[in-house]
Design a protein around this nucleic acid. Sequence first.
DNA 1: GGGACATATCGATGTCTGTCAATATATCTG
DNA 2: CAGATATATTGACAGACATCGATATGTCCC
Lengths: 111, 111
Amino acid sequence: MAVADLETCPTLVEAPLAEAEAEALAATLRVIADPARLRLISFIAAQPGSEACVCNLTAPVGLSQPTVSHHLKLLHDSGILDREQRGRWVHYSLRPEALDLLASVLSTGSA
Amino acid sequence: MAVADLETCPTLVEAPLAEAEAEALAATLRVIADPARLRLISFIAAQPGSEACVCNLTAPVGLSQPTVSHHLKLLHDSGILDREQRGRWVHYSLRPEALDLLASVLSTGSA
DNA sequence: GGGACATATCGATGTCTGTCAATATATCTG
DNA sequence: CAGATATATTGACAGACATCGATATGTCCC
């Protein structure tokens, strides 16, 4: 279930959501609706090139390495972060289109 | 914890989120990250005047009356829906600014 | 006031998930 | 190949929450 699957979804306020559409959107929102994952996103986004090595992400969020790895996996699986392995290190980078797509689904267009 | 409290928050990609800021944003996102609540929002938004009586909301989502009432309370407490009682009936209406504010916090501005 | 109706609250229950310690996998270096 | 380092996976557990039935609260009408 990736953010990209929402591209075919109507806007939230456009028409009544069918059950499957609602579940798809909720699944993506659930990934973002966690303080640790929000902090990871913002930390990565704040780095030059919007990318960061995992080894630099454990300390700032104050969680164990397996937990951070777990969160990064969820963010990657849902298409919010890109993953690139360089030798022993793994770099995660932000996919801004994902957040922007989510924002556009939520927006009412009346602003 | 209402959406309006996010007005002082930086954008998600603007700067690293502090723990309290991340928790505040996550709390609001959690309210939206549920299929039943997403459907309620979209059903209400699709009505003329973006408002609906509770009695018209139970059937479409296929949940019990107490459960629907519970979801509406969460949506109201977080500032996404307005509540107005008219006699025996209660009407909930959408506050578009709330969704738009959320959308603007998520947006990277690079779109 | 009494009965009917609309909505909200309460208590209980099952499921989901965030977290960790332990361990596995993978890559580099000597 | 052996050891070291970086990341991922597994298993377990506690806390959060969606849901329901039962009941309470509030409002209208006779």
